[in-house]
Design a protein around this nucleic acid. Structure first.
Lengths: 228, 228
DNA sequence: CCTTGTCAAGAGCACTGCTCTCGATTCTGT
DNA sequence: ACAGAATCGAGAGCAGTGCTCTTGACAAGG
């Protein structure tokens, strides 16, 4: 693990982690757009310009934080997977995603909120970003393999461009019928839409606190994709 | 309409609008968090401190823009309503919401993106914020009244706290059964989750462009709430 | 040992939101 | 019609920001 060769390299790796830690701590209190390199450097007892030895710009620091956040969320979700009851697993994944998001609202906003102005997400963020939908898709694939997936009869077959786009998802869950793949995307957008509404305050006054609504939604969405 | 009494008041109202216009224009290019009072004042050929005669702070300006955005979106959605075919109306509302959002991505991000750091939405934003869900709910109420609503049999009855929260929605659509009210909230979160994913780049690589996916989702969500 | 690369520090640039003061203008009550 | 009050834009200034460039100290490898 700690195979940093020279003392310099080890010191550099450690300091890089410390910077991210301080940045994450500040992120949690003031939010992403108010993240200040100078404040981070103050917390670490160094001068702001020294940070640029480790991150060439504020955006690069944000990118590192974004990737870390996607990975943390992905790990939290994957930790909730497993077990024999697929429906219980589905509901547990929903709950784990929500728990992580509520525990790290600013990091959630960083990855699912409005894009930072002038900031273009590099390709490296794509892979960690799709861990959760991939997890759901994998669950459905296992369900299909074990005969626990009953595609609802009213799920329309995708056609045209939509069918073409659905093709891309087939390798990820070869046995899941296309109609269910489309529904999985719908369900995926519903999950994070619901979460964003809760965290960003759109539900205040109606479904807040959203515990029971969230659980009900997770079960209804499971039924929607045919998971029983 | 233009009943500003004194010349001062008329000038003030006009300038207030001009400031919002310039701010909106800047918003569209640089985004919300990079909206600069000084840049707005420069565009208007005045000094930055003068803006504080019209908006006590940057946040107040943002609040005004937020309310305007909610209202613009609400109007766009309401303009798509009407007609005799309720299902077509439902799909048209979805399309209108999407069209507005894609035409005004920064204003959309302003209201449905991550909350601005340190900014607390005042109560005045609530009413314009719920115009779209209210529109959908009203449509379902009309559908129920004309017997066009067939609540799916598998829609679970809300219980406990969820049932209690659903009560709040009953006055808005008295004839719509509680199970459908819960589903309407689910559908509402799906709509804006899907839209946020498209606009914020989460769908790139899978369902982008999302035209066909969006239409399919709108129809499947209509069926989900029982609209035929 | 001694060159080479890396490091933190500091000064400085252009920008931000916001406050305060200062005259000038406009409105309002008499 | 005129005096006092309210409102206006302009300007200077404060504390903060991201970022760049230069300088001198230190460690790594030949």
């Amino acid at each position: 693990m700690n195979a940093g060769r020279t003392a310099r390299e080890r010191a550099r790796a450690e300091l890089t982690e410390e910077i991210k830690g301080a940045a994450r701590r500040q992120l949690a209190t003031v939010g992403a757009e108010a993240l200040s390199l100078r404040a981070v450097s103050r917390e670490l007892g160094m001068v702001s310009s020294a940070l640029y030895r480790y991150f060439p710009s504020r955006d690069e620091l944000l990118t590192a934080l974004i990737i870390d956040a996607y990975d943390a969320l992905g790990e939290a979700a994957e930790a909730a997977a497993g077990g024999d009851d697929l429906l219980a697993e589905w509901v547990a994944i929903y709950a784990a995603v929500r728990d992580w998001a509520r525990a790290h609202p600013q990091e959630y906003a960083l990855i699912y909120g409005s894009p930072i102005s002038g900031y273009k997400a590099p390709q490296t963020t794509v892979e960690p970003a799709i861990r959760v939908p991939l997890l759901l898709l994998g669950l459905l694939q296992r369900a299909q393999a074990s005969g626990r997936l009953s595609p609802p009869g009213d799920a329309p077959e995708p056609s045209g461009l939509l069918a073409q786009q659905t093709e891309v998802l087939v390798p990820l869950a070869p046995d899941v019928p296309p109609a269910v793949l489309v529904r999985t995307v719908i369900v995926w957008t519903q999950l994070f839409g619901m979460l964003s509404f809760e965290l960003f305050g759109q539900l205040v006054g109606s479904m807040d606190p959203a515990d029971e609504f969230f659980e009900s939604a997770s079960r209804q969405m499971a039924a929607f994709v045919g998971l029983t």
